[in-house]
Design a protein around this nucleic acid. Sequence first.
DNA 1: CTGAAAGCGCTTACAG
DNA 2: CTGAAAGCGCTTACAG
Lengths: 334, 334
Amino acid sequence: MTSRPTIRDVAAHAGVSKSLVSLALRGDPGVRERTRERILLAAEAIGYRSNVLARSLREGRTMLIGVVISSLENPYHTEIVTSVEEAAESAGLSVLLAHGSRDRGKLTGRVESLLDLGLDGLVVVSSWVEPQVLRRAARRAPVVMVGRSERPVPGVDAVNNDDEHGAALAVQHLHATGHTRIAHVGSSYRPAGLARRHGYAAAMRRAGLGAYVRVLDAFVADEGLGTLLARALEDGYDAYFARNDVEALDLIDAADHVAARVPDDLAVVGYDDSALARRSRPRLTSVQQRRELLGRRAVDLLLSRIDGRAEDQHLIMEPRLIVRDSTRPRTDPD
Amino acid sequence: MTSRPTIRDVAAHAGVSKSLVSLALRGDPGVRERTRERILLAAEAIGYRSNVLARSLREGRTMLIGVVISSLENPYHTEIVTSVEEAAESAGLSVLLAHGSRDRGKLTGRVESLLDLGLDGLVVVSSWVEPQVLRRAARRAPVVMVGRSERPVPGVDAVNNDDEHGAALAVQHLHATGHTRIAHVGSSYRPAGLARRHGYAAAMRRAGLGAYVRVLDAFVADEGLGTLLARALEDGYDAYFARNDVEALDLIDAADHVAARVPDDLAVVGYDDSALARRSRPRLTSVQQRRELLGRRAVDLLLSRIDGRAEDQHLIMEPRLIVRDSTRPRTDPD
DNA sequence: CTGAAAGCGCTTACAG
DNA sequence: CTGAAAGCGCTTACAG
C-alpha cells in the first residue's frame, strides 16, 4: 500500500546502477554471479516486484491472453477455460478471464475492454460473440475461436469439436444396443445444436433408420417436453439423443413424471459429458468433447499466430462416447 | 495487428498537439467543442484506442480489480463473481478473474500474478487462500475476503454470510414441519462447514432437541454416507440438514438406494441454493446466501479502502430459507 | 484556449 | 562488466 519499490530503489540498496538491476533481474549472462546475487537479495529485502505494466509498455507485449466465455454457469465452457490456462501457463502466458453472463452486449464490451488492455491474444469460447466483433478483434490481436461461431470469420483461427460425428456416435450406440426408434431432443438453433441435429439425421439415414427421424423440439412445437415425450413414447420411441446433458436430464425428469424408467423403458444419451452427467441418477451416457485438447490446441494456434503465421487455420477434434447407466449395456449377439 | 495508433498519430491527423488530444479525449472542459469533435473524429478515423497500460503507468492506478475463486466449478462462487463484477462495473472498474482449480499452490500463484499487474484491489472468494498470502497481499493492495478465511487477517476486510443463522433457519423449518430427530450431514472442516455444524447444534439445543444432535460425517466415520444414513433412519431420524446442496443431493441419492422417499420418509435441507437445488428431483429446500449483496458490499469495502479507510471492517449478511419439495410443507396446526 | 516538457517504471542499445 | 540516455504511450502542470 505504501508506494511500491522500483528498480531504482533496488539499485540504491545494492549500490549499483538502475540498468544493471534490470539486467541482473532478467538473468542476463553478462552480469557477474556475485553481483547478481547481491542484487537479487536487495530486491528481496525491500520487497521489490517488477512492474508488469511498465515492462509491457516498453516491450510492446503483455504476456497476457484473454479468454472470453458466455457464462460461468456452463461447466463445459469453464473446463475448456481451465485447459486453456494450463497450456498458456506452460508457455509463460497469464490468462485473463471475461464472461458475458449470457448477455450479448456485455460480451462485446468485455471483448473490447480486454483488447484495450493490450492483450497478446484472445481465445473465444462462446458462439454468442458476433462475427463482426470477432473480425474487429482480430485486427487488434490474434483471435482463436473454440467451438463454432455463427459463421466463419476471416482472420480468426478456430478449433472445433466434430459435432456431427458426436451425434453419429450416439445414434450408433443406441442402434447397437437394440434401438431403432431413436428421437433427437433439441430446441437450440445455435451452431453446435444445429450440427448435432444434422449429425443425428445423417446418422439415422446411414443406419437405414431414416424413416424414424424425429425431433422433439419444445421451442418450435411450443409444447412442453413432457407432452412431446409422452407422444413419442406412444409411438414406440424408446431411445433419445439429447443436444446436451441438461436437456437429457430434463427428458429424464419428464420420463419420471409419466412413470417411464431409464434405461428400461427408454434409453437416453446426452452431450458434453459434464459434471451433471457424472452425478445424475441414473448416470448419463454422454458424448465427450476433448476439452483438454481443445484448450491446448487453441493456445498453440495463438502462439503460432503471434509468431507471424498469416493464413487461417481450422482444427477439428474428434469426440468420444462415454457409456453409463442411462443406456442399456451393449447387447452381445447370442 | 499492425502497430497500434497512438495519441501522437491522432494529433497529426487532427493537426493539433499531443497534449490537446489527451485533454480532448478525456473531456476536459478547457477544450473548445468544435476542436474536441474534430479530434474525436480523427481518433475514430484512424482507429485509435487509448493504451490502458500507458495510462495506468502514468496515473498510478489501473482501474482494475481482481477476483480470486477456488474453482470455476462451484456455482455459488461464480454467482458471487458476477455480482462483484456488476458492482465494479458501475464504479468504473474492470474485473480480472483468477481461479485455482482447487489447487492451493496455484491459487497463491494467481494472487501474486494478479497483484503484479498492479491491481487497485482484490476480492477473495475462497477460504483456501492462506492467511499469510492474504496478509502479504493486503500490503500491496486493498483486499476484501468474501466468506470466511481460515482465520481473521489484520488488514483484510471481510463480508460474511451468517452461517450459524443459516443453520438455525434450516433446523427451525424442519422442527416447525413436525420433525424432531434432525441430523446434520457434513464432512467438511473448512470454516463455513464448521460454522454450519455449530449453528446446527446450537439451534437444536435452543429448540430443546439437544438430545437428538447427530452428525453424519462420512470423513470421520470412514464409512459411506449410505451406511450412515441407513443407521440414522433405523434410529428414527427423518430430517437432515446438509452442509451444502451437493451433500444434500448425495444424501437423497443414498436414500434412493434404500428405497426411502423424500420428503415422505425423510426431509432434506441443503445449503447455498445453487442451480443444483433448483433443478434436482425433488427440488431442494435450501438456505440461500444473499450473493448479489455479498458482491456489492465487497466492492463497497474495496472502494472505501482505496479512498483511504484505515480500520478493518467485517460485514455479516443474513441468509434466508428457500422452501421447495424436499421438505414437507409447513404443517398448519389443526 | 494551446504547445513544450517532465515523468510513470521499465529495457535496450551504446559508450565507456 | 558498468553507467548515462532514450523511449514505450500517456497525463499533467506550466508557460505562453
